[in-house]
Design a protein around this nucleic acid. Sequence first.
DNA 1: AAGAGTTTGTGAACGCGAGAACAAAATCGT
DNA 2: ACGATTTTGTTCTCGCGTTCACAAACTCTT
Lengths: 235, 235
Amino acid sequence: MTSVGGRRSGRARDERAERGIPEATVARLPVYLRALTALSDLDVATASSEDLAVSAGVNSAKLRKDLSYLGTYGTRGVGYDVNYLRYQIAREIGLTQDWPVVIVGIGNLGHALANYSGFASRGFRVAALLDSDRARVGEKVGELPISSLDDLEEIVRASSVSIGVIATPAAAAQDVCDQLVAAGVSSILNFAPALLAVPDHVDIRKVDLSIELQILAYHEQRKAAGLAEIKADAG
Amino acid sequence: MTSVGGRRSGRARDERAERGIPEATVARLPVYLRALTALSDLDVATASSEDLAVSAGVNSAKLRKDLSYLGTYGTRGVGYDVNYLRYQIAREIGLTQDWPVVIVGIGNLGHALANYSGFASRGFRVAALLDSDRARVGEKVGELPISSLDDLEEIVRASSVSIGVIATPAAAAQDVCDQLVAAGVSSILNFAPALLAVPDHVDIRKVDLSIELQILAYHEQRKAAGLAEIKADAG
DNA sequence: AAGAGTTTGTGAACGCGAGAACAAAATCGT
DNA sequence: ACGATTTTGTTCTCGCGTTCACAAACTCTT
Ligand SMILES: NC(=O)c1ccc[n+]([C@@H]2O[C@H](COP(=O)([O-])OP(=O)(O)OC[C@H]3O[C@@H](n4cnc5c(N)ncnc54)[C@H](O)[C@@H]3O)[C@@H](O)[C@H]2O)c1
Ligand SMILES: NC(=O)c1ccc[n+]([C@@H]2O[C@H](COP(=O)([O-])OP(=O)(O)OC[C@H]3O[C@@H](n4cnc5c(N)ncnc54)[C@H](O)[C@@H]3O)[C@@H](O)[C@H]2O)c1
């Protein structure tokens, strides 16, 4: 960072963030955060990029470059202050505030998600559980009762919910998605194996168990094929 | 020993596959497969790369390039035969055979996974449910009883299991992972928020709810910041 | 205070994947 | 038979992300 003239006073720090952090880096920040939390729990005060990289399972140069997008929080010859860096990353991701979340579709998976304690451990708070099945509405899951999907809009407004989780069957997913968007939700995590269309201002991410298994199967098959070939060549 | 000279006669077609398909492409093949299945259910016999690309939510040039790694299964001026292409992709991924899977850690999430019908719909068959909690062993979940983790090795051998799913708490994940690998499992899908070390010959993929939510939170925060700035500039 | 040792932050090289663009190959209409 | 039309397979270019490598900046020792 060779600054030639002056005039870099106030904005210098914001300049980086303003351009936006590369998507690949954003995806790794939570991993670093987890590694830092683990170190902090072990009362480690300072860690080098190499230490952190090992904890996070990445290359140390990549880690340093990733962190450089946030600012210069390290000290040359020393490393990073674990708690300070942890706070900075948490702030960058937005975990210094609370994120209310609604879960739609309280079946097998929805129940597991509703009972999941790992939600709250970061700043994600389950604000409501929603299902269209009238027979299920009112049933308690943990602390929370299941609400009717009809109340979605009111709940989203009342609790300022901006994140929604879809755990309905695939056939209902697009419809639920549209309702979430209409209610004002602008980030969606989708567990249903369906392609969802959303407006530009809405972010959507999917978790697809079936795809993950198929990717594993592909590589597994290749391993088996490789072995077979070796056998054939030997025989 | 691989001979240098001949013996490559019938192999010309395999040449493509032998080099391996790019990882990004492998990850999309299951998406194409799903799109093709949907079209097939609608009795669509033929589809152009553009049709397919729309169904799968990708760029059509990318789709064509992806498919070209498998072979030349399309017809210029016509498109792709839906069922034929579907079979070819399924074969490439390895879905023409059955993949027995063991699930370890039958708690909240493990129960949901055990009851999940989407597993069987592709060739993934749950061969066993395992838990270390003696109180849980014997309990039935759907059709299957929960087995003791002690029986892992025997189950893996008896059913030729090569894929394992970890749904234990993070603290137990590495230990469970090691046991899976020792038993002969060579592909692992990990739901625990932990970094797992495995030998080179073992493939591992992770599904991390917390990371997904944090990525959404980051973008959500940016949207909010953008709006705040506009307001401030206007005011 | 100066030299030896560490570790960061970043410039530069490289590789991979995305997408535009187009020639080749098939069908269709006349 | 042949030109117009459609659509594939592939080439080419561009941008992003990863990794290496190193000067700059800091600490520690003497
Ligand atoms: N169970 C798993 O382990 C698992 C794993 C990966 C993916 N998935 C996917 O997650 C989704 C849910 O799976 P599940 O096993 O929990 O299914 P499920 O059938 O047990 O639960 C679905 C729930 O959604 C509700 N629902 C249906 N239509 C709705 C609508 N329009 N609005 C609101 N709620 C509605 C149903 O009443 C039901 O409670 C499915 O798409 C499935 O493919 C499940
Ligand atoms: N519940 C969810 O929705 C959810 C979502 C995302 C991630 N996860 C992660 O999935 C994992 C499981 O979550 P959960 O909510 O089902 O937890 P849980 O506590 O309900 O279940 C954990 C199960 O693992 C078993 N177990 C513990 N140690 C074991 C060992 N050494 N060997 C075999 N089994 C063992 C326990 O007996 C228990 O049955 C956790 O790592 C969690 O972070 C859960």
